[in-house]
Write a protein that binds this DNA or RNA. Structure first.
Lengths: 82, 82
DNA sequence: ACAAAATTCAGACTATAGTCTGTGGAGCGG
DNA sequence: CCGCTCCACAGACTATAGTCTGAATTTTGT
């Protein structure tokens, strides 16, 4: 199955809006190179950063989280049906 | 208006399940004192921690985020209607 | 092929997430 | 009063989030 991380999702949304990493960084108030690190999955953001990036990409943060497919620890996004 | 932070929401859910901070910490694989810091708003968790805590409290992480009311930077939860 | 824009990468750095150990206080039941 | 549980708190520590500068590399448009 396809793994959609925070970074890959962010990249997808960014490109969908025709933004460069640098432009997104400016809108987030974050560093140019840090956006690059996030997209490549080399950093795990705090929820404060999640909110900033979500705002910059005009998506609700819960929407952002909901669209992720990841394993953090023993959490499985798919197969978790309540 | 009522401000519901990550910490206060976590505390509410924890107490709702009748768990001590220590029991929750164990279920999350986090430190006892760190749970205390989170509840008092003295730390901002990474999204990895969000997923761990959500799993321990049997709530979907996007649900958790959705139930927060916070100002991170210039983000306003309420009044953001798209 | 060329130049410019976009991104990656490296290193050194600062800020803060998260751990560990212990202390002291509040509340509660014997 | 005594022991017990839970929690706040402090301090010192380790790991990693996030910044900054600049150079190397890839991508893109013409």
């Amino acid at each position: 199955m396809e793994e959609r991380t925070f970074g890959s999702l962010m990249q997808e949304l960014r490109k969908g809006k025709g933004l460069s990493q640098e432009e997104l960084a400016f809108r987030c108030g974050l560093d140019r190179t840090y956006i690059s690190l996030l997209e490549r999955g080399l950093r795990v953001p705090t929820i404060a950063t999640l909110f900033k990036v979500s705002a910059a990409l005009t998506i609700r943060p819960e929407e952002f989280i909901a669209r992720m497919r990841v394993q953090f620890g023993n959490w499985q996004k798919d197969g978790s049906r309540e």
